[in-house]
Design a protein around this nucleic acid. Structure first.
Lengths: 121, 121
DNA sequence: ATCTTGGTTAGACAGAAGTCAAGATAGACG
DNA sequence: CGTCTATCTTGACTTCTGTCTAACCAAGAT
């Protein structure tokens, strides 16, 4: 098992990609939890809707896009929230969601493939 | 050894991050399947070991790092293979795995946060 | 206060997923 | 050929997950 300690500081990066160094168990568990939150098609679409909106999104604008019941949407939103990918706030009658880009950027960087590694084999 | 279909449907502008435009259902399902493959701590560590090795990795070098049985490792490696994240080949007595960076890079880009979007709120 | 609308929580259930033991398979070596 | 080693597959078991209905809570309107 080759254990390389090459620590690359990528511009805009916030962690070492898995292509560069193997993850320790704790980081793997934490990362897996975030991936699990995105491992459902509905949640991934929810995340993309919220992240691409460029503003807070009302749940009432989200629900019509899906063919599942309201409680199911609510359940998926909670999973995204508990994974640290979004946050929400009730204002008056409505609840608004917005993305938390830090977590999203973290796992994106975790998966990024540096050029040198991408050419391996 | 095994060759699943790893076609990436680049429908509707493939590498557009979810922060920029919402995903269609098909792309969301495809992306969610890849995230699901990485949603287990053992699989994420397997992926990082294979991706960071810089060379093919023998299963016999992987198994000792984990506290689960051989069949379980084999099962997880199969999941990664069917997700298009790794491929393998038997040579003699041993089976070697190597990363397929395309899929990995695809979802990394999918999650990337452009500067302008990252500053939203 | 009561009703209405928007959203979450609780409970239940079917199906999916992770794990292991046992058996199967593939190749190396006599 | 048979045997040994490394790995995968199968089958069973247990736990987890996605979904629903029903009930509940929060805020505004009547």
């Amino acid at each position: 098992m080759s254990k390389q300690d090459v620590s690359i500081s990528r511009s805009g990066g916030c962690c070492t990609p898995i292509s560069v160094a193997a993850l320790d168990e704790a980081t793997a568990s934490e990362g897996a939890a975030v991936f699990k939150a995105l491992s459902d098609p509905i949640r991934l679409r929810l995340m993309s809707i919220i992240a691409s909106a460029g503003a807070e999104v009302c749940v009432c604008d989200i629900t019509p896009h899906f063919n599942v019941s309201g409680p199911t949407i609510s359940h998926h939103l909670r999973v995204l929230r508990e994974a640290g990918l979004v946050d929400c706030e009730r204002r008056g009658t409505w609840v608004y969601y917005w993305p938390l880009p830090d977590r999203q950027q973290w796992i994106s960087t975790l998966l990024s493939v540096p050029e040198t590694t991408a050419l391996a084999r």
